[in-house]
Amino acid sequence: MGVMDQVELPKPVRYVFNWGRKFSLWCFNFGLACCAIEFIAASTSRHDFIRLGVIPFAHGPRQADLLVVSGTLTDKMAPAVKRLYEEMPEPKYVISFGSCANCGGPYWDSYSVTKGVDQVIPVDVYVPGCPPRPEALLDGIITLQHMIQHESLPDRIAGRRQDAVTLGADAPLTLEGR
């Protein structure tokens, strides 16, 4: 990291670096409800998202690149998601998987459910469904990979810093010296 989020790299180097991030999405599953079952189905042999470089070996958030929030996020659980997200090292990506994670879904008028993960953490890709098919997650991952291949890391980090403020974090999500 360090310099990489400050300096725009020349195009071929950027291509290679983006390619690396694209196909090495160590995935951390924040399974909260029934959508987590579909996530697990996507990791099993029938759908096998390791094919796409999404490796579910990340035991903890420190090694993860991709956070998949699958299921109903309650207000009680929201701080845990936020903390987990902050424990992940940049560059990190978030997929919101299913209606509940997108915006509360069936619990749109519940007193205890957070109306979407993006109330707490910035989300890159929203996968609709209740729950979505495993293939829908694969489609979401491909969508995310497309984004990663064409993104600029310094822009992304700069955007993140802004998001951190607008999302009402205690402090901006800085990269060093947390």
Binding site: S96, D118, V123, V125, Y126, P128, A136, D139, T143
Partner: peptide
């Protein structure tokens, strides 16, 4: 059809 994941929730 299930392939309509989006970058932005409004687009859903």
């Amino acid at each position: 059809e299930f392939e309509y994941a989006e970058y932005d929730m409004d687009k859903l």
